[in-house]
Amino acid sequence: MAIQTILVINKSGGLVYQRDFIKTGAKLSSNEYLILAGTLQGVVAIASQVTPKALQISAKTGSKTANEPSQLIPYVGSLGAPAQNLSDMGSFMGQDFFNESFPSWNQSGLKHVTTDQLSMFLYQTLTGLKFVAISTQSTTNAMAVSIAENLLRKAYCLYADYVMKNPFHDPEMPIKCELFDTHLAELVGQL
């Protein structure tokens, strides 16, 4: 699975980061990316409104302990590829950024879109920040989805380090941190 683009969208729907990793991919203007970010923000909300009644009804009849709502995303070490771990993980010690399966904060909002040519994965954090990865492989395979979620959570860890801890970065403003760029490129290169 090759990642074509990574986007970071802040909690108000504004695009704060956009980076293409494959040069021959589609070229959108920066304006079009801004519109894309705003649209995704809206669709995340709409997707949760369109949840089928069958699921809404079973959720209400006290099946809070049912398997579906509390599913964990399995940990995929090295993102499934045989490459080595990152050389420098910032403030995260140990083999990898994290090494356990983790719950998703985004239960009923949009997570994943596939088209003829691509897949788009969306990871939303508790603070409303959204990480989007567009890959060149159109797949709904559960393993691929787990790999993408792991990748986006690692991108979140990089964000927490190189963007949040940069005192000259304005929150909610576009990200202009070289260290974040470099480390993200390294992370994506692992795949």
């Binding site: 991919g25 894309l36 949760s48 599913q71 009923s108 909002g109 997570k111 879109v113 003829d116 040519q117």
Partner: peptide, 28 residues
């Protein structure tokens, strides 16, 4: 929802080919 995501996927398509939307998934 389908309309918005479909127009996004068409914008993201490579030269000359159609990029039609196939699936939309949430956690549920």
């Amino acid at each position: 929802m389908v309309f918005s995501l479909r127009s996004i996927s068409q914008k993201l398509s490579g030269e000359g080919s159609h990029n039609e939307i196939r699936t939309i998934s949430t956690g549920k």
